[in-house]
Design a binder for these strands. Structure first.
Lengths: 339, 339
DNA sequence: TTGTAGGCGTTATCAG
DNA sequence: CTGATAACGCCTACAA
């Protein structure tokens, strides 16, 4: 049987409500009773029951976090940022891997609602889903992270994907590349769309005509980068540089490039996006567009906690700036010799 | 205001306990009332309150998971395995990053106890701590993952670290290496100690004398591998091969080796441990000892759920077998030319 | 400064 | 097959 505040009260010779007051550091309690209660608590090894408390206070101090996959270093870093900030604010985080599957998202959302989490961090795909839209209707506190959409543009924290796309492409153009390919993310996501938009804008600004054949849709994963690059390698002539919509795609692309015996950056220049830890560790270290993942996680929680505490809706929309991190995966354009 | 079973009952013209029965699919309920209740639930958008339920049933269907750092791919994969299995068994997982800090572990343990999680997955360091020992005394369900210790050897799931250490070292010996260095993990962890033991055994079995100078303690992180290798490079002669106690250490070591202009595997052969996804993506792809992380997470939850459901203590201790994954980071030993 | 009482939303048990 | 009742453990007016 578990020890309750009643047991403590009995041992201390006071009323349970007094125990509650001691725990909540009610200043009115006399030092004498406080002492009695505290020693009783220690003697019994009493731990307050947050469930009972939550029933009364309607607060669980728990957040739900929906992300596609914690195994993806991008989301792992965000998750770390989220958990750190949550912890500092006295919240715990329930981890949910959705694999971007609508079905999973719905189920988790339902469970988390049942468990009465105080708020939600959403880094998952199907934001248009009625499940999410309903959250909004109910004024349930939630923050979108790195998955802002046109329709749901409040309480979101994201990076300026378009500018990031421009930066990556411009950098390659400055190195003299003209035949620049782009491996996109899934085009149902806004990030992927915006990075593609940036790519097009940068080309246009330099008077380079956009070519459909140089764009391949990927999946934000290594496999997709590999497959996309495989197709790009068959073009005649192939591109001299590639802007991949995230680092994993870039890694996949690099894999097949190296497997086919080509050299990076001599034969192909490569730019990624995100700057996951991995990016600096592969060979050659990957030039990429940096998103501050940890910080994004932190900020998301900050906004969310605010939302939870102050009922009024402060609709924040934070767009962070991307940064170009130059490493070793790009070179100046050189005319390709016949191989 | 939130909708309760009482509201549903009212609309359906039944008693709240009937609503509860419908939700729990009590077979005795008539189709007619079931229909009424279900439509009332839908009309009101009722979601049962798991907090209230938990108060009554003393079950939260929530697990706590303590790991050092979700940003570490090794633990990210374990976490994924844990969450998947938990989800399948109707449990949610609260993520806790401890950074292997005693203080953090204690705080989390305390909070999770307060929140009345049904069980705990512990992948964190200070298992000897009184907080953990108390769990045992209270017969609180928990499973140790990848952090078994001498004293706490029950309900743990781990890999055979010693055999892994032997395999790694033997492989290098078979390639002709004799001057083999070992970068260990933190020697307060059993894994690190066991891998070191394996290293020594393999050397002894081949009649190679163990040399203190060839062993450097690391921290299971990239930085530590880098620093340890830096020292090893100063030896005269330096080792021709390195067995690193985990992949991150190996990556750190590879970094400085390549930075100094040496080649892997020509100048140094390298074996890691774990086989994180990264291992196959770096250059050169890392030969390593594979632990089945996802599977370990799955198994841990399986044991834990069992422990939670069947009060009797079935003290399982699962030791999985490591596998050598050969990639491109090792070569046959060659006499080193003067550089 | 402390005790009393009622209720948070469920569910288990007993009736009927 | 369904209703009534009490209880889970805590918190918070209100009373004293």
């Amino acid at each position: 049987m578990n020890i309750t505040s009643k047991d403590v009260a009995e041992l201390a010779g006071v009323h349970p409500s007094t125990v509650s007051r001691v725990i909540h550091e009610d200043p009115r309690i006399s030092n004498k009773t406080r002492g009695k209660v505290i020693s009783a608590i220690k003697k019994l090894g009493y731990t307050p029951n947050a469930i009972a408390r939550g029933l009364k206070t309607k607060r669980t101090n728990t957040l739900g976090m929906l992300i596609p996959d914690i195994t993806n270093p991008f989301f792992a870093e965000i998750a770390r940022g989220v958990e750190d900030a949550a912890s500092k604010n006295n919240f715990n985080v329930i981890l949910c891997n959705t694999d971007d599957k609508l079905q999973k998202e719905r189920i988790y959302l339902e469970i988390l609602r049942t468990k009465r989490v105080d708020g939600l961090i959403l880094g998952t795909a199907h934001l248009q889903d009625k499940g999410v839209l309903e959250l909004e209707k109910r004024h349930f506190p939630f923050v979108l992270i790195s998955r802002n959409t046109e329709s749901l543009d409040k309480n979101c924290i994201a990076i300026d994907d378009m500018t990031g796309g421009i930066m990556a492409t411009e950098y390659l153009i400055k190195l003299g590349h003209r035949r620049i390919a782009h491996i996109t993310g899934p085009l149902k996501t806004k990030s992927a769309l915006d990075r593609l938009k940036g790519y097009k804008i940068a080309l246009a600004e330099s008077g380079i005509v956009f070519r459909e054949e140089l764009v391949e849709e990927g999946d934000f994963r290594i496999k997709g980068g590999y497959l996309a690059m495989k197709k790009l390698l068959k073009l005649n002539p192939p591109p001299s540089a590639i802007f991949a919509a995230n680092d994993l795609l870039a890694l996949g692309a690099m894999q097949i490039i190296q497997k086919k015996g080509f050299n990076i950056p001599d034969d192909f220049s490569m730019v990624g996006f995100n700057d996951i830890t991995l990016a600096s560790l592969v060979y050659p270290p990957l030039t990429t567009i940096r998103q501050p993942m940890l910080e994004m996680g932190n900020l998301a929680v900050k906004i969310l906690v605010n939302l939870i505490n102050n009922q009024e809706e402060i609709q924040e929309r934070i767009i962070l700036s991307p940064k170009l991190v130059i490493r070793k995966s790009c070179n100046n354009f050189k005319e390709r010799k016949n191989k």
